[in-house]
Structure formats: C-alpha cells, structure tokens
Amino acid sequence: MSGYLSGVLAILGINIIFAYSIYITAATGQLNLGGAGFQAIGAYACALLSNELGLPIYLTLVFSAILGGAISFLIAFPVLRTKGVYMVLATFAIAEIVAGIILNTDYLGGPTGMIVNAYIETEVVLVVAVIIVILGFYIMSTRIGLAMRAVHDDEAVADLMGVDKRAIQVGAFTIGGAIAGLSGGLYALYFGFIEAQYFNANISIFVLLYVLIGGTQTAWGPLVGASFFTLIPEALRIGDDWRFFIFGVIIVIMMIFRPEGIVTRDALERVWRQLFSGKRNV
C-alpha cells in the first residue's frame, strides 16, 4: 500500500468512527455540535496513558473510549435538560471549554501541543472502523435502535408507548462520547502529535455535516457521508480552499434536493425491492 493511499484510508477510518459517534446521538434526535471536545478528551487520554504509564496501545484505546464515555455520561444529565437550539449550543459550549482547559494546562502541553510516543499502522484504524460500523448497524437493528428511532421521530409518543426516553437519550449520548473518545485516541496514535487548536469548532461542524448529509434515518448514513466527503475531494485533487468551497456548495444543493440525506429508508427499500424483485412481495 502506498504511503498516500494508507494516509487517506487512515483519515477515512477515523472520520467514519467519529461520524458514528455523532450519528448515535443524532439517531435519537439530538444534534451534538461538540464532537471535537470528546475527540480531544480521547486523544489526550490516550497520549498521556501511553507516554506517562507506557500502557500497551490496545489498553490506551480502551481507556480513551471509557473516559470519553464517562465524561459524556456525566455531562449528559445537565445537557439533556436543554432542548433544540439550546442543546446544540450547550454541546458547542462543552467543546469550547474542553479546548480552553487544554490550552491553559501546561501539563497537557498547552498551546504547543503534545508528542505521542506510541504508533499504530493504518490497518489497526481500519479494523477498529469496521468494528464500529458493525456495532452501529447492530445497535440500530436491536430493540434499543427501534426505541432510538421512536424517540427521534416523536418524543412524546415514544414516551407514551413506554419507551424510557431519558435512558435512551443518556445512553446514546454516552455511547456517542465513548466512540468519539476512541476516534480521538486513534487520531493521536496514528499522527503522533496532538494540539488543542486541531480540535476546533470546524471539526465539530464538519462531522455533524457528514452525518446529516449522509442521512440520520439508517445506519448507512454516517458511513456514506464520511466516505463521500473524505474521498471525493481526494479524487478531485483540488486545493484546500476550493475543496471546502465545493463542500459548501454540495451541502446547500443537497439540502434542497435531498434534505433527509443521501441514504434514506425509502431509498433503501426501493433498492432492496429492485434487487430482490420477484422473491419478495412488498
């Protein structure tokens, strides 16, 4: 595998994992605009554990997921008291606070960043990405996934039907935080250097866009969205500025013609029917 290709694949893997973390929350109807904050927590946890304690790589990744999950579990209670726009802004505030704390802590390298000693190959990132994608599909196929969809479509009715709305929302937020922490850990180990400035508002916005453009109705959404927006610019081989300009244009056009995202339940059913027509009477 050439260096360029393996680099692109690693970024793709990290983006897909990150997209699933936001997707799990979005699937319950909560928009999380603070993804970068949870990613930063995972990245710094991973870096510290491997630099200071010399833990093996797999253990550091597990711990960065656990820490991301634990912190988002604690934050979930105050944050989920807020709704709608307030929730978006509260998660945004959390990401800003995390970045601010890292910038002000000398132990974490402050504004100069931190070098990570351990290192992982692209293959590890891809294996973890495959596991997370399977996990995402599995969660959405269980009763929990069904409850998440119910809460997403109508909170009040889901509540009336006996779905524990609060448990579902807190659970989804926690799992999302854990997966974001994991993606941060992988980022730290793959690139070998982390700084607070990388985990900025733009990263949170982009990952939310991957998910919303991919579609929040099915577990295909984040996979398609993250792959689309990571691979298309690479395939076009255009400068960074033009890349984001075209990204913006695609978003505006997408929202006009396919506001539910690239992959929707309807579209999937239609494809299924075409593939297996005759075998199934739908």
């Binding site: 928009l31 479509d153 916005i205 109705q217 300009f245 913006g248 506001p259 539910e260």
Partner: peptide, 28 residues
C-alpha cells in the same frame, strides 16, 4: 414537508454550507 422530524435541520445545515462558501470565497 418531507414527512420526517429532521426537516427543521434543513436551514441550519444549509446555513453551515453558506458559512463555508462565503469564508472560502474570501480565502481564495
């Protein structure tokens, strides 16, 4: 109307798209 509760994210998301468009026009 698109028959799903996510419809209200439409203006929010496309305003993020416009944010990128305007910023990168100036950057270019």
């Amino acid at each position: 109307k698109h028959g799903d509760a996510t419809e209200h994210a439409i203006p929010l998301v496309s305003s993020l798209g416009f944010l990128l468009i305007f910023e990168y026009i100036i950057l270019i």
